[in-house]
Amino acid sequence: MTTDYHSRIPLIEEEAACLAALAGDLSIPVPTCPGWTIAELITHVGQTHRWTVHVLRGRVQEPIWSRQVPSGLAEGQSGDADWLAAGASELLDTLSTTDPETVVWTWGPDKRASWWPRRMLFELVIHRADAELALGLDPVIPARTAIDGVEEFLHNLPYAAWVTRPLAQLGMEGATIHLHANDADGEWTITQGPAGKITWARGHAKGDAAVQGPVGDLLLMLYGRRPSDTLTVYGDHDLLNRWLATAAF
């Protein structure tokens, strides 16, 4: 766990620098985050960094959400590249000096500091992709990072109540979705369980629906950033799309 914790810190630094470099024209709309511009995207990411710092430095034990943490911005003001970089620097320093075994609040299953760098890495990866798509660029996610991202998404999804509640309304209990990376050693099967919660397992299996493609595209698909019809789909395409539309966060 300690190795994973510290190995993600340089990746966070890279992703934060990449996103800051994309924050030129802050007025550009972000189609994958309807209603947002680049300014609002940057503000959201920078606020999540400050939230993480607050939780880790304060050894917070009770639920607290990012909007409850001071941003350093005036009312109605949006963040910019410099503000994002300042928050990322503080985040990196905090992660580097925090014991991964420190007990703190998280919204996921792991109540230790070690949960936070992985979550912050993929918050950055996905929102960097959002900014690139807004600018007409094609996001590239290294396969090793994307595999980690798929598993981080599946690991946390059962604890995202804002997702499991609507999943429970789909009437899909027992449905299975298989993901198969064609550019890396990655296969997963997701099973929809009771109360909207999912279980998942690595390895080859048949599913009611199956999706094959580059693992970076599979990750973007899970987050609603890449349509399933841009990958190879087998089986029940409608079931897949209904599940994806509900599960993305």
Rank of each mutant, 00 (worst) to 15 (best):
A175S: 15
A181N: 13
R50I: 00
R8T: 08
A175L: 11
D130T: 02
T164I: 12
K111D: 09
G108M: 02
F122K: 03
A23E: 08
P166F: 04
A134R: 07
I64H: 01
V104P: 10
A205W: 08
W115M: 09
L218T: 11
V150K: 10
R112F: 00
T3Q: 12
G24Q: 14
R242G: 11
L73M: 12
P139Y: 06
M221D: 07
V150A: 11
G224L: 09
T232S: 14
P29D: 12
G35Q: 09
S89G: 10
F249H: 15
L170Y: 00
T189G: 09
P117L: 02
I141P: 00
H204L: 12
V30R: 04
Q47E: 14
A195T: 09
S228P: 07
H127I: 06
P100S: 07
R67H: 12
L167V: 06
I190C: 09
V211E: 04
E132C: 01
T52G: 13
L239G: 10
D93Q: 10
A88P: 04
T164M: 10
K206T: 15
D82F: 01
E15G: 10
I141C: 02
A131F: 03
L135T: 08
L73N: 13
D229Y: 11
I147A: 10
P29R: 04
V211R: 08
I198D: 08
T232Y: 07
T102K: 12
N241Y: 09
H49C: 14
T52P: 01
L179R: 00
V104S: 11
Y159N: 13
W107G: 05
A129C: 08
W188N: 00
T191Y: 06
P139S: 01
H44S: 03
I42N: 08
L95Y: 02
L95I: 06
E90P: 00
